[in-house]
Computed example of a mutant assay.
Amino acid sequence: MKIAVVGAGAIGGYLGARLALAGEQVTFIARRKNLEAINAHGFRLILEDGSLAHARDVRAVERYADADPQDAVLLTVKAHQVRDLLPDLRALFGPQTMVVTMINGVPWWYFHKLAGPYEGRRLDSVDPGGAIAAHIEPERIIGSVVYPAAELVEPGVVRVIEGNRFTLGEPDGSRSERIEALSQAMIRAGFKAPVSKDIRGEIWVKLWGNLSFNPISALTHAMLEDICRFPPTRALAARMMAEAQAVAEALGVRFKIGLEQRIAGAEAVGAHKTSMLQDVEAGRALELEALVGAVVELGRITGVPTPTIEAIYAAVQLLQRTLQAQHGRLQIQPLA
């Protein structure tokens, strides 16, 4: 299978290297030092047990037009970065190319083939003006939920922290030939790649934690276990999650685990900085719309109140605006 990985960072590198080692034809879309390192040395993985896996037979290109049309395009960038890929991304598309959205949060295609009164609606929070939908035909979409944690430690080198599960799903819940082929390719590469009949339900279970713990951590600079063990912030996260659950259920989603069980799972992760806190500390743009703003928009669409989520959303919006205006970052430093 010809597979392009768009976003040769931690998750993209993990996926691409393992798929290449399993015999798939992998092309990374990369830039600058990452591009040079991959073309010079291939892609290297430091696995959970400390062993090294080296995928030498990969290539990297900067210009999308330098890659052939692909069987599958894995989007492993952040949600707010997808617009920056347009319209160049289309150079990777052939008639049957799948676009696999391995992105946190509510996807721009959420209402595609969602049976019911909202089918076909657009989410302005994640696709303002419909630019993404205009450049990526919805029929190409395969949904995915990313569970592993990894980090890009240097150009062309990823350390796997834990996990190997990537749930896949067609927007209409079908078990198509194409998703079976993709799942089998990922399984051959050593991943768990189950095909879900309810990919939106899977998305919501992960989003449930991200929409609460990420913005709370961005505002407080606390790690997951601290948020969960401090009663006021644990209660705050629970209120946000309860509001989100009401929104999801109004859209037909049924949660397979309880709210307290989800919080306990986050607490068990321990002293972990959320991705949004890492972005605040590094001065990077935040995944705010896909993780929080979209839930607020879905609440308005369904008529479900989300006052707690909206309050936290407003605070993090201002934080992001302030950091961008000052071209700065925010970190807690120990006193001398």
Rank of each mutant, 00 (worst) to 15 (best):
K2G: 05
A4F: 03
A8H: 06
A10C: 12
R18W: 11
A22I: 13
E24M: 11
E24I: 03
N34K: 09
E36T: 15
R44I: 13
E48Y: 01
D49I: 07
V61Y: 08
E62M: 09
A65I: 13
D66C: 14
D66S: 15
D66E: 15
A67F: 12
A72H: 13
L74E: 08
R83Y: 03
R83M: 08
L85I: 06
D88V: 05
R90G: 08
M102V: 13
L123C: 11
L123V: 11
H135A: 15
I136G: 09
I136F: 09
E137L: 10
V146H: 00
V153I: 15
V157F: 06
D172K: 00
G173T: 06
I179L: 10
R188I: 07
F191T: 10
F191D: 08
P194S: 09
S196T: 10
S196R: 04
S196Q: 07
R200A: 11
W204K: 01
W208E: 01
A218C: 01
M223G: 10
L224G: 03
I227T: 02
C228M: 14
P232K: 00
T233K: 10
A242I: 05
A242F: 05
E243V: 12
A246T: 11
V247R: 03
A248H: 10
E249F: 05
E249C: 05
E267M: 13
V269A: 12
G270I: 02
L277M: 14
V280Y: 01
L286W: 00
L288V: 00
L298W: 02
I301D: 02
V304Y: 02
P307H: 13
E310S: 15
L318A: 15
Q324W: 03
